[in-house]
Amino acid sequence: MANRLANKVAVITGGTTGIGLGAAKAFAAEGAVVYITGRRKAELDAAVAAIGPNAHGVLADSTRPDDLDKLYAQIKERHGRLDVLYANAGGGDMLPLGELTEKHVDDIFARNVKAVIFTVQKALPLLDKAATGASVILAGSTTSVLGTAAFSIYSASKAAVRNLARSWILDLKGRAIRINTLSPGPIQTPGLVELVGNDAAQQQGLLDYLASQVPLGRVGQPAEIGSAAVFLASDESSYVNGVELFVDGGMAQV
């Protein structure tokens, strides 16, 4: 099926690499007008070129409310509505309990929780104007339900995101805005492999280890998350609300 997102206006935060870029390519291929955000112009311009003519780049940091205001002002001026919002921007670093710092905790929760809250809140007036109802997708993770050594703060932030979706669908009861969480397992992205540094052998070792933990026997690719995001963004999921969709090869299901 093609053009499942025809005539839809979509925003994907953190859309310059990895999962965000994979989702943006999938949205554009299905007919959406896609706005991606990024903090570095060179990467943003390269991503827009890779996505194609339906893509627009906006320099924005999701942790900065003023940047979010500028993003949505552009959407309002050009389209007057927003049909799909994928709050994908975020990330984290690995530190064990004994080495945690206040800066580490504040940084991860600012990027993965606080930024998500205001990314969605500030979009509500535009989401309310979506013709066939709006879809909000929050970036979750299998780490929210699995223990992961040296990854406790990132994991806790993703558990918080999952509960935001549960609570917000009650706040928005009666409004045609659906909110779901998309939780990937290990996906081969720069952000994943760089957790162990820049050494190629160590990066491959991480991928091999993670593949051994997945029932399908491999790590996933950004395009596979993009396909799941297209479903949640499309009218095919019009009665899907508040769920957590795991795209993890079965990793968190056993």
Rank of each mutant, 00 (worst) to 15 (best):
D248E: 06
G52L: 05
T142Q: 02
A149P: 08
D45S: 12
A89H: 08
D45K: 05
A131Y: 08
V120W: 02
K70E: 15
A160R: 04
T132D: 15
A110H: 04
A87H: 02
L182R: 05
T13R: 01
A150C: 09
S62V: 15
V254P: 12
R166V: 13
G174V: 12
I108W: 04
V58T: 00
L68H: 00
G98D: 09
K173S: 13
T101P: 01
S135I: 11
W168I: 03
K158C: 06
A160N: 11
V145L: 08
A176F: 14
A47G: 11
V230T: 05
V193C: 04
T132C: 08
V196M: 03
L164S: 00
Q203L: 10
L210T: 07
G52A: 03
A29V: 11
R78W: 12
R78Y: 15
G57I: 01
G249N: 05
L146F: 11
D199G: 02
V33L: 11
Y35H: 10
N180Q: 06
A159C: 01
G174H: 14
I75W: 01
T13Q: 03
M251G: 04
I51R: 09
Y154P: 02
L245C: 08
A211K: 04
Q203I: 08
Y154F: 05
D66T: 14
G217H: 13
A131V: 10
A149W: 12
A6Y: 03
V136Y: 01
A23F: 10
R81Y: 13
A55S: 08
N180G: 10
L59H: 02
G220C: 03
R218Q: 10
R4T: 07
L97A: 15
A134S: 07
M94Q: 13
A130E: 09
A110K: 07
A134C: 11
A176I: 09
T132N: 15
A10L: 11
E244M: 06
V240S: 10
N241S: 09
G38P: 03
L182D: 01
P184C: 13
S62L: 03
E224D: 11
A42K: 08
L164A: 00
K122T: 02
A89I: 06
A149V: 09
A149N: 10
D106Y: 00
R218P: 14
D248Q: 15
N180Y: 04
R175V: 04
K25C: 07
T16S: 12
S144M: 15
V116P: 10
L146Q: 12
T148L: 09
S237P: 09
H104T: 10
I177R: 03
V34H: 00
S183E: 13
Y35R: 09
G133H: 12
